[in-house]
């Protein structure tokens, strides 16, 4: 795979003096789904806006498909589709007309067969003659996606695609994203929702205060920061952790019938075998075992905290 979006040393200072991006460098591989996570005001939208041409870069270089987004903006922008954060649609226009408009704007000749396929894929075909103001919020978001895909881009930017969308629609949106990936579209999405990144991304980048704190494979990120947690339910409650188990650093749950054990998947030895042997030797009978992985959310919070420290 090769990088379809290359960002080198991107800086942006707004007129008021706010430094939104402090030299971000990033390479996005063709065909991947990259999730950019970060708190409000981290610089996610500025990053996307600068790649797409809505904001002027303050410094640095951005190339899309090998084309510089400033000097060769026509070639670069033809490859890019953008779904903005806000639902911005002309209220009186029909769905099919606004999608056709987007295709024309990006220099493509009219192709009714493609537009039909696209609207059907996004479950909008039945609504094609509705005015956009008559649609529900979720449908409007789909119209924005249809507009962004109308010119068959190779890279799709989704700026908080599921902000304010209910759980069902969010899952729906994830399916749409998965379909697009299957079609070979590279997807960059920003999100507040860690579960979103966890569910659909191949790689995760974390942005805070205009800096890219890290970018890596989701799985390796999980593994690297992965604290796992083992819960041992006991047949009979106990008053305190037996002396023989003291070396394992266990804590006892409130009812006295659950032992908690935290371990690091990165370590060579997790200590689980020894712990279970010792529990048996201490004469405790186990009823159930459960392990939990730390979520991206916890990883994210710890990273942002580290950055603030």
């Amino acid at each position: 795979m090769s990088a379809i979006v290359e960002i080198e040393g991107l800086r942006k200072v707004y007129a008021g003096g706010f430094e939104a991006l402090k030299g971000v460098s990033l390479a996005i591989e063709e065909g991947e789904i990259l999730a950019l996570l970060g708190p409000n005001g981290a610089g996610k939208t500025t990053l996307i806006s600068t790649v797409c041409g809505i904001t002027n870069p303050g410094g640095g270089v951005i190339r899309v498909g090998g084309h510089d987004v400033v000097r060769e903006y026509r070639q670069a922008r033809r490859l890019i589709g953008l779904v903005p954060q806000e639902i911005n649609l002309e209220p009186f226009t029909k769905v099919i007309d606004t999608v056709r408009f987007s295709r024309g704007l990006f220099g493509k000749t009219r192709d009714d067969a493609y537009i039909e396929k696209l609207l059907k894929q996004l479950s909008l075909w039945d609504k094609r003659d509705s005015r956009t103001m008559e649609l529900s919020g979720g449908m409007k978001r789909r119209v924005l996606i249809a507009k962004a895909l109308a010119h068959e881009p190779r890279v799709l930017f989704l700026d908080e695609p599921t902000a304010g969308v209910d759980v069902e629609l969010r899952k729906d949106m994830w399916d749409v994203v998965a379909d697009l990936k299957a079609d070979g579209v590279t997807i960059i999405l920003t999100t507040h929702y860690i579960e979103e990144a966890e569910a659909i991304a191949d790689r995760v980048g974390v942005i805070n205060k205009g800096e890219l704190l890290l970018i890596e494979e989701k799985a390796s990120l999980m593994a690297r920061f992965g604290q796992k947690h083992l819960q041992i339910e006991l047949q009979t409650p106990i008053a305190e952790v037996p002396e023989a188990l003291a070396s394992h650093g266990l804590s006892l749950g409130e009812g006295g019938d659950v032992l908690h054990y935290a371990y690091d998947t990165r370590g060579e030895r997790t200590g689980i075998t020894a712990l279970l042997n010792d529990i048996a030797a201490a004469g405790l009978v186990m009823r159930d075992l459960r392990t939990e992985e730390s979520s991206l959310e916890e990883i994210f919070v710890s990273l942002v905290k580290e950055d603030a420290a």
Binding site: Y73, R74, N88, F106
Partner: peptide, 17 residues
């Protein structure tokens, strides 16, 4: 002004025009 007001100007700015 209308696209500026309702926010659809983003599309013009990000288009190859």
């Amino acid at each position: 002004y209308f696209p500026k007001f309702i926010g659809t100007i983003y599309e013009l700015l990000s288009a190859p025009v």
